[in-house]
């Protein structure tokens, strides 16, 4: 709720900021792409999205020399573009692939910052495990995306939800942007991320200062595992009740081998 007066107070700055228009354009483009209109509308949506990305890029500060800036822009474009494509793609399989592309971009951003472990772990955990599982489900469930839950239109809720969400994002970005502008830009990544032994240090840190959290997460995963097994066993036990009754069911073991030859 604190963001509302801030938003009103900075309305003047808001209207003149390219950031604001970039966000508005981006929201419009997403809306056009998501609403499932004709190809022309989707084309306009794509164009607006590109323009909004350019405007957003212009408002960001320069983080280093031109080559690293270029690398950053490319990676950021891959990440945001992949994310946008992931939520607007028509086919669920393409959604999964764009999600993976977006994650690869994120991993690239981490690597670019010198956080080797975070970058590679992102790929292993997300792109590797989750998306493969995701693909599994998609392919086994509905290759064409015609499941009943896909056909339900959520557009009644979409517009108000999107408006609220967009307002919150704009307010948050504007309030944090001033703080970001006033502080010194980060020229070098933190020492712990770039040291030769940063994985050992990371591990030591996790198990020295966050031991309880780690154990809680471990227990949670364990419980989930046990739950999954319990569900499987339950489903297996209940099957005979649901199966049709067989009239040809053998009622006697006479004639079966094992006894007299």
């Amino acid at each position: 709720m604190t963001c509302v007066p801030l938003l009103l107070g900075q309305m003047d700055q808001l209207v003149r900021s390219p950031l604001c228009w970039g966000i508005v354009l981006g929201a419009t483009s997403l809306w056009l792409l998501l609403s499932g209109g004709s190809e022309t509308l989707r084309g306009i949506g794509k164009l607006l999205g590109a323009i909004s990305l350019l405007m957003l890029t212009a408002t960001l500060m320069i983080v280093g020399d031109w080559s690293s800036q270029l690398v950053f822009w490319v990676l950021a474009l891959i990440t945001t573009g992949g994310a946008a494509a992931a939520i607007t793609a028509r086919s669920p399989v393409y959604t999964a692939i764009w999600f993976a592309v977006s994650l690869l971009g994120t991993a690239g951003l981490f690597l670019f910052q010198g956080a080797q472990f975070l970058g590679v772990a992102t790929v292993v955990v997300y792109a590797g495990a989750i998306v493969v599982t995701f693909l599994f489900v998609l392919m086994l469930a509905q290759p064409e995306g015609h499941a009943p839950y896909d056909r339900i239109s959520w557009s009644t809720f979409a517009v108000p939800t999107a408006l609220v969400g967009a307002a919150a994002v704009i307010a948050l970005v504007l309030t944090s942007l001033d703080g970001l502008r006033s502080s010194e830009p980060l020229t070098s990544p933190p020492q712990i991320a770039t040291s030769q032994q940063h994985m050992a240090e990371l591990g030591g840190h996790l198990f020295a200062y966050h031991l309880v959290s780690i154990e809680v997460i471990g227990t949670l995963l364990m419980v989930a595992l046990v739950g999954a097994i319990a569900i499987v066993l339950h489903g297996r036990k209940s099957r005979p009740e649901t199966a049709p009754d067989h009239p040809s069911r053998p009622t006697t073991d006479a004639g079966l081998p094992g006894g007299t030859p």
Binding site: S248, P250, D253, G255, L256, P257, G258
Partner: peptide, 11 residues
Amino acid sequence: MQANDPAIKWV
């Protein structure tokens, strides 16, 4: 053929 057919020889 049923599983309990006497013609089946179980090994």
